[in-house]
């Protein structure tokens, strides 16, 4: 079986940050690689519509 968590603990984390920007900025300032996702609520903030779209895609 793949062991991506164990590999992570032996290696170096590379982060994808989704949401509060400071979380990513803090990691970046500490010398870690961070890709920030420019996130906004899907389907204009309609969670139900977003779930329907997820099912379709």
């Amino acid at each position: 079986m793949a062991e991506p968590l164990k590999d992570l603990l032996r290696g170096k984390p590379v982060f994808v940050n989704v949401g509060v920007r400071e979380f990513g900025d803090t990691l970046h300032a500490a010398g870690y690689e961070v890709v920030h996702v420019d996130w906004s609520p899907p389907a204009g903030g309609n969670a139900e519509m977003a779930a329907l779209l997820d099912d379709l895609l």
Binding site: V14, V16, D25
Partner: peptide
């Protein structure tokens, strides 16, 4: 946190940009 001209709009796009990503921080 990013040097890219435009931040990716989804986690999938982010991983395409950095295929060695291994942790998502979600808030």
């Amino acid at each position: 946190a990013t040097e890219a001209p435009r931040d990716p709009r989804s986690i999938r796009e982010a991983v395409e940009a950095r295929p060695d990503s291994n942790v998502a921080v979600i808030s």
